[in-house]
Design a protein around this nucleic acid. Sequence first.
DNA 1: TCGAACTGTGTCACTTAACGTTACAGTAGA
DNA 2: TCTACTGTAACGTTAAGTGACACAGTTCGA
Lengths: 139, 139
Amino acid sequence: MNSEFTIAVHSLVFLANLPDHRASSESIAYNICTNPARVRKIMSTLRKNNLVRTKEGLGGGYTLGCSPAEISLGLIYRVISTGTLKPHWCSGDPDADCIVKSNIQTVMDDIFTESEQSVIRHLDQMTIEDVLKKVRTAH
Amino acid sequence: MNSEFTIAVHSLVFLANLPDHRASSESIAYNICTNPARVRKIMSTLRKNNLVRTKEGLGGGYTLGCSPAEISLGLIYRVISTGTLKPHWCSGDPDADCIVKSNIQTVMDDIFTESEQSVIRHLDQMTIEDVLKKVRTAH
DNA sequence: TCGAACTGTGTCACTTAACGTTACAGTAGA
DNA sequence: TCTACTGTAACGTTAAGTGACACAGTTCGA
């Protein structure tokens, strides 16, 4: 899976944990241990899906688009990571004569898509609020 | 996910499709479109888990360790790919003061482990025989 | 209206993981 | 003892992931 999913979840949990739910890309990046440009790129995608609100200019930054209890990890996955379960490398060759060699790609594609669906169904049961609770109670 | 999973499944389906269920690493690699050394490395792991039998020397090669109906994709995943769902990159820093920054790694680890379990449960419901059937009926 | 503090986005460089290639020791049958 | 295999390690190459930088656009306050 994509590490952008990690960054998206971490960013949202970080915002949820702040009293005013507001932060700049620089402070988020510092908390995540990455660079601001990468955070901005991912937050930009989240904004297009209404998971965060962004404000440019002086005093701008990022705020949560809705309550932490309303943001499921499944939604974040769908927005950020759809298709990343499947490995980049493919076996076989669609133009070959052997049915295994020629058809395996289609079949494996289905398997990866279905597997991804089962991950999403699992992630749908967890929200940013749940993750924040776990972070707060982690030993 | 690991592309070694693809190679393992493809190899087993390829063997299952052969009348005598026997092939060399070279012919398997040709069907998969990769190199024999890579196939041998993965088959070696499968052998240690009794999914295939191997025979060295003249006339040697690989045969199925049991019936295609007995080999679930979940088992293959467990043997070949456990831990590969989690991205290599980690956010946060266990030594930091902020609870989000310091605890997120543990929490995300759990999330990835649980997600992997849900994938395995899904893959457990499918066997090499099922995959072979799909390959044979794919349009 | 100017400057400071932001986001949005593209590009390029660097690092690391994935994959391929080669080599060679070990094994088994003809 | 020769040939055809597997087992495994080492090394080179390619592709993906990540970081760094640059700069245009936006917003607000002085």
